[in-house]
């Protein structure tokens, strides 16, 4: 039996997260509420033999939560339900300059030189804090890159 984790997101109006958590004490191990974007995130552990069983259990859980929220007078619309193996860990697709340089085994200064060279992965985002790359693309480039000997280009003699 695998342990799964389900996460349910709702868009809400202003709520008192402590009061909502009180209603959901039996249904959710984690309640997160961001009071500016009004998104309520609920998390619960589920058991299931496989993903299909876990997904079915997550749908039942979502129905139960809907009923509890409605009974508590909470106005909330579900916007997302995700199910993952509890051992899956966080998604780590994004790599900033530091992480990308680490994957390549180079300094961030060298990464800046490589960025923009033909064949080097394009950044997927450019933020004020720097570029964000897809970690898989950086890893693929590392495995397939041409050998880089570093240093100055060699001088060629006229007869070469």
């Amino acid at each position: 039996m695998t342990t799964w984790r389900a996460e349910l997101h709702y868009r809400t109006t202003d709520i008192d997260p402590a009061q909502v958590a009180d209603h959901l004490a039996e249904s959710a191990a984690v309640v997160h509420y961001h009071s500016e974007d009004h998104v309520l995130r609920l998390r619960a552990g589920l058991d299931g033999h496989d993903l299909a069983a876990a997904t079915a259990a997550a749908c039942h859980w979502a129905d139960d939560v809907d009923a509890v929220l409605a009974a508590g007078g909470v106005t909330a619309s579900p916007i997302r339900l995700t199910v993952e193996d509890a051992a899956a860990g966080p998604l780590r697709w994004a790599a900033g300059a530091h992480e990308a340089a680490e994957i390549l085994g180079v300094s961030t200064a060298r990464l800046r030189q490589l960025d923009g060279k033909e064949g080097f992965p394009h950044a997927v985002l450019e933020l004020a804090g720097g570029k964000v790359y897809h970690a898989d693309e950086i890893e693929t480039w590392r495995r397939t890159r041409p050998v880089d000997r570093g240093g100055r280009p060699r001088k060629t003699s006229p007869d070469e």
């Binding site: 342990t3 984790r5 997260p17 402590a18 958590a21 004490a25 959710a28 191990a29 984690v30 309640v31 997160h32 509420y33 961001h34 009071s35 500016e36 974007d37 998390r43 552990g45 509890a86």
Partner: peptide
């Protein structure tokens, strides 16, 4: 603006928190 309410029942829930 972030509020977390944890009702942990297992060590996995604690790690999650």
């Amino acid at each position: 603006s972030d509020n977390w309410i944890f009702a942990p029942r297992s060590t996995l829930d604690v790690v999650d928190a």
